[in-house]
Design a protein around this nucleic acid. Structure first.
Lengths: 152, 152
DNA sequence: CTTGATGCAAATGGTTTGCATGTTT
DNA sequence: AAACATGCAAACCATTTGCATCAAG
């Protein structure tokens, strides 16, 4: 049978399976806790989740999964290239799937967030390569500034 | 007399006084602890110092200055625009004078830090202004990547 | 003399770790 | 059966805070 009763539907379930494959390919094991973490992440889409928020959502379907397990899983999944950890400003780190990659420009006055494509950084990446041989792979930068509305 | 017995020489002492003036202008008070913190920072130049490393150097001349005071002073001085706090990769934040402004490219493998001039971000800043009217004033970006040595 | 700064100790918050046990391969 | 993952509690580390005292303006 192809129809599963997952709340996120067959597409979400398939996505989770694909990610678990990548985990396994990188030497990790597939466990219920890891599946649950990925389900939450797939469900969250581009939303940024802190570890404890993620754990809270995991607890909805798997209450026994400990926060420390979530941390360990996030670490393994990041090593497998499945997800990214971002340190946005202060407070806890946040996580999202590698598929939802992007950068941020944040207004210092009103806090509005503008998503910045990876392409926008092309010139900087090129300059670093040319001048320092540095292979930049910017993943999650936050650019500080003032938005159009607040600037006037 | 123009010759002072400061190890950093008259230029360093003048620099510290100028920075203290900015502090005072922004409503802060000038204290021995704050002077000591700035002396260390001026001496360090473009070097990145973590709070506890900074405290250790302050202790060379002022052993009674507490680490919590250093933290509070760093906060005040950042608010006065005198210095910048940067979160490079993992571990503690590091600090440097605003005069030594720059961004960072950090190697994900060996942790080496390459300083990137503010100019390098010109194209990105321009693109944000053109496309979103966003006035970017990037202060301490950290660009992730792999350095020349680790890439080979 | 008033307000802000300091030293200290103790609390905080996010994250990591040691260990005994359970699970995946 | 071997290697790895988990739950739990406890450790850890960078940073913050409450409070009584002190010093700068």
């Amino acid at each position: 049978m192809t129809a599963h009763a997952h709340p996120s539907g067959p597409t979400g379930a398939d996505a989770v399976d694909a990610l678990l494959d990548r985990l396994r390919a990188s030497g990790g094991r597939v466990t219920p806790a890891r599946r649950a973490v990925l389900e939450v992440l797939v469900e969250a889409g581009a939303e940024h989740l802190a570890a404890d928020e993620l754990a809270a959502r995991v607890h909805a379907s798997a209450p026994q999964v400990h926060l420390s397990t979530v941390y360990r899983n996030l670490e393994s999944l990041e090593e497998a290239g499945v997800l990214r950890r971002a340190r946005l400003g202060e407070g806890p780190a946040s996580y999202h799937l590698s598929a939802d990659d992007h950068h941020h420009a944040v207004c210092r006055r009103c806090g509005v967030v503008i998503q910045v494509s990876a392409d926008a950084l092309g010139p900087v990446v090129a300059a670093l390569a040319r001048e320092h041989g540095f292979r930049a792979e910017p993943r999650h930068l936050t650019i500080d500034g003032v938005c159009a509305a607040c600037a006037r």
